[in-house]
Design a binder for these strands. Structure first.
Lengths: 200, 200, 200, 200
DNA sequence: TCCTAAGCGAGACGGTACGTCTTGTCTTCCA
DNA sequence: TGGAAGACAAGACGTACCGTCTCGCTTAGGA
């Protein structure tokens, strides 16, 4: 049996919070391990005792980061949500939330070192979408392989968010949500042959 | 006036070819400047005389790389191409070409350092798509902001290629082309309200 | 009053024996505190409870080590012993003993960290020699300051032993003893003006 | 052919001088490689380009250090020098020089890390003495193996210097020289059976 | 045809960060 | 309640690259 050892937990949190704080200040790439341990008031060795590298630490922070992307396929891809051209309220709120989280997200979306987590977000997102579609519509019904479709949707979603946060186009969160909703709906309808139920 | 000096040109080519060759062998990230100059039989100084960094050199190689992504919106998003559910032949060929170029592309798509060029490919792709749509359909006609739509399509395209080359799912190039074509068509039809012309 | 506490004694012995054993195996320098506590089946804290450092422990082991240098001035510098050119039997035995103790002594004589104990052996040896000479001949009789003479003899003795154990010249223990005896005798005779009693 | 490259020579001198200066200030042991490169205004890498460790550097400084021990067997063990009880003038001067060099020598004689160079001084000294004796008196003439005798004399000499510089006894340089001379003379006379030519 | 400036190979250099190692302290928990 | 277990802060270590720098050698292209 391993004892949880409250100290260990505390140390890890100190280190993770130090990283998050530093990312907000200067972005991810220029941060060094020394910066992190200085900020966390922790010995260099201790850092390597818990994480193998800065990237490894970063991956272990993904809960703090993934949580920012609050786009759950269960709500924004629910069958009911895809009927009309209006996006579910939750999606609009999610896009609004992204703006607020920009300080943390921008450095992550831009830094080259954070590519790993971006990839992970994308893959996890694709998996969730695929699972949801398989569940809600059934694999066999689709004219397009579900894994392909999921990858398409997940990639488009990430790209859209990246584009919006980086390029800062003048579109509002509502507009974003609506456009994204339309495009998703079109893709899924096409895949499952749901026809044009209304003009939109 | 600067004289072209054939030697300068030759040196740059040596360096670029050295990089391309090394990428094929081990991927992009682990390559060091020293590796490149050793391979190119060139002095370290000479390298920095022409390029400011490995990334800078990489960007100057982008012709050699961008050329591999032979997806031009002028052909695969042409109005005529979007009528039926069958992808234009050129698109199928482009996907087939990607498989052949896998040895070069995979390290680039995966390495974190190559994020820059990936971003550049994506942005340039988005610009081309936007220009094409503006030209072919007119900005005003769209229910979705054209820049947003272009970003969506470009992101989805890159993600799909990445997914296909990395995960190596069992779908053929033809299948890829067809699915991708359907999804693009659905998005554009939805944006421009072209209705369901046929069952597909 | 502190209780002797047999456990404390036991722990110290465990630690000391661990050190001695490790010295025999790999020499002194590369041993770490962690090595010692692992070998002794003792907690790190416990070690520092009894000794302040590896060197400190080493000094507390000196009985186990000093005992190997069985050269007592009371016997090998006794007035009677210095009459003839033949060394006292005890001295020959002492040199023979050194060969047997080589496994333990060599790492100590060579390791840089063991300089402390070597210095201590030398100083103690010099003190003993000085006390003996003062006692046997009287301070005033010497043409050479007794502390200087003692230091000279002690230094020469250590050096000879070091040289013999390290360089492994082909001379036998008997030869060593005889030569060393002659040289000591010559030094003391010169100091106290005892003339040439015989040809030797 | 290797070019000497004046820069390399300069760098090495900078580093060596930095070490010597630091030894004078704080002794040898507590100096770190970083201290040295800081003082020498040299990159850490550069240090390791020329020397493998602090000790290695130290050994390469031995000319600067060995020179302080100006006791050449050719003068202080010359046949002529051993006739009378008075030490050659050069020996007295050498001992006087040692006092002046105390600031540099004391840290070296005491620090545990400098054991290496001390050993080297001792060995080289022994070799020189052996060579001189072999040359001046002939190997066969000695009742004592010459290498043994040389080791004895060299060890005694180092020990005496160490004792004098460390313990700072009230004896003058002249006294030291005289005593040391007598003892050496006695040892060599005994070895080569030169009898007592005079009372001394 | 020479000669003179540029391009170049070679590699030393200062610098930054890395991941590892050992030390001595401090905490927790068990017997 | 003392000791084993081991987390921890501190900081030196030797390595890997970086981008800059001198140093001569080669090699045109204009005189």
């Amino acid at each position: 049996m391993t004892k949880p050892d409250r100290r260990v937990q505390r140390t890890r949190e100190l280190i993770q919070q130090a990283l998050i704080a530093l990312i907000r200040e200067r972005g991810y790439d220029p941060i060094t391990v020394q910066d992190i341990v200085d900020r966390a008031n922790v010995g260099r060795t201790t850092f390597y005792l818990h994480y193998t590298s800065k990237d490894d630490l970063f991956l272990h922070c993904h809960d703090a980061i993934l949580g920012q992307f609050q786009l759950s396929p269960h709500t924004h891809l629910a069958k009911a949500a895809l009927v009309g051209p209006e996006p579910p309220e939750a999606m609009t709120r999610a896009f609004q939330h992204l703006v607020e989280a920009r300080a943390l997200l921008t450095p992550i979306l831009q830094g080259k070192d954070s590519l790993i987590i971006l990839r992970r977000i994308r893959d996890r997102s694709a998996e969730e979408i695929a699972a949801h579609l398989r569940n809600a519509y059934g694999e066999a019904e689709s004219r397009i392989p579900l894994d392909l479709l999921a990858s398409y949707l997940a990639g488009a979603q990430i790209a859209l968010i990246q584009w919006w946060l980086e390029k800062r186009p003048p579109h509002s969160a509502e507009q974003l949500a609506q456009s994204f909703h339309r495009l998703q709906r079109a893709a899924i309808r096409d895949a499952f042959g749901l026809g044009e139920l209304e003009a939109g």
